[in-house]
């Protein structure tokens, strides 16, 4: 991908973009050989979306979330979802303060800038929806009182793809709340050797320097919707949406929310790569992660994995 910076690119925070690159470099040192996923993860964050990572335990989901928080200088909390998790365990609870004689709201772990919701599918739908509501509204309401989340607010939820007894996989309507879903996958052999030889990732985390301030991050998030999307590009996005709605391969097409998400993610991607406007390549880069969990194939055997769904859409819809 070229860094084509030809022509005027107004209001582009080039310093911010460089800092994002620095963040990618820093993260790359922790999570080996997953640059693409890291970039997608950052794009998701920049587009103010939330991320769902679906993978088996031990591939570095927690490390990724933790490293991300540190590189971006954000506060971080991890919520381990279990079957007995209550909504209050996530959002917080009002406690009676004997000194003041009043109830005081104790903010839960969700009041953090980066929240890792580990194994969301192990909790009951009730607990899940407490998190999903906070994600959607960017606020928590308790006893009639509304508490806004700290900004930026980024939820990384992980889900174990192997359904086990007593799990509640997120229904499709909830999956739509996540802008992207990615899989980390096993590392390559050479990189795994590095993992085996190198020091503990957790030790590396401690020495990780923030590459971005929260203020810079917020500014970049504000830039994303302003990245230029030309008519030709919107035609392409709409052609993709139309195809998913008409094709017989899928149960249902992309919702308008999903299409907006696709454009935002592409804008974030274009911003990260300092493109003058959104290129079709930017859409193509984010599309598999954005649509993979939203398009349910009518016949499960048709596609091997979610990535294939995105690839199929890309190959079928020509760039106008």
């Amino acid at each position: 991908m070229s860094a084509a910076a030809h022509g005027a690119a107004p209001a582009l925070d080039s310093a911010g973009v460089e800092r994002v690159e620095a963040a990618v470099r820093a993260l790359n040192g922790i999570i080996l050989g997953k640059e693409r996923q890291l970039r997608l993860c950052l794009a998701c964050l920049l587009a103010r979306g939330h991320l769902l990572i679906e993978d088996i335990p031990g591939v570095g989901k927690t490390t990724l979330a933790h490293a991300l928080a540190r590189t971006l200088g954000l506060t971080y909390q991890r919520i381990q979802f279990t079957s007995d998790l209550l909504p209050a365990d996530i959002t917080g609870v009002s406690v009676f303060d004997a000194e003041t004689g009043q109830f005081r709201f104790h903010r839960g772990p969700v009041f953090s800038q980066v929240v890792l919701a580990d194994e969301v599918n192990r909790a009951t739908p009730k607990a899940q929806s407490a998190l999903l509501e906070a994600m959607e509204e960017h606020q928590v309401t308790s006893d009639g009182q509304t508490y806004p989340m700290s900004e930026p607010f980024f939820v990384i939820a992980t889900q174990n793809p192997m359904y086990q007894v007593g799990t509640f996989p997120l229904p499709e309507s909830q999956l739509d709340r996540f802008l992207m879903r990615i899989e980390l996958g096993y590392p390559e052999a050479a990189l795994e050797r590095q993992l085996l030889l190198g020091s503990d990732r957790r030790d590396l985390l401690v020495v990780l320097e923030p590459a971005l301030t929260p203020q810079q991050l917020l500014r970049l998030q504000g830039e994303v919707p302003r990245v230029h999307a030309s008519d030709a590009l919107l035609d392409y996005v709409q052609a993709i949406a139309r195809y998913t709605r008409q094709a017989s391969e899928f149960e249902a097409g992309l919702s308008p929310r999903a299409v907006i998400g696709l454009l935002r993610a592409a804008q974030a991607w274009a911003l990260m790569h300092a493109h003058p406007g959104v290129l079709p390549e930017d859409v193509q880069a984010v599309l598999p992660s954005v649509v993979g969990h939203r398009l349910a194939p009518r016949e499960a055997s048709r596609f091997r994995d979610a990535g294939q769904i995105g690839q199929h859409v890309l190959e079928t819809v020509p760039v106008p």
Partner: peptide, 21 residues
């Protein structure tokens, strides 16, 4: 080709396509 690419990207997808481009 590199120049065509840049000019084309700016013209078709950029915010300010110009006659010069």
């Amino acid at each position: 080709l590199a120049e065509i690419r840049d000019v084309y990207a700016a013209l078709r997808y950029g915010p300010l396509p110009t006659e010069t481009d």
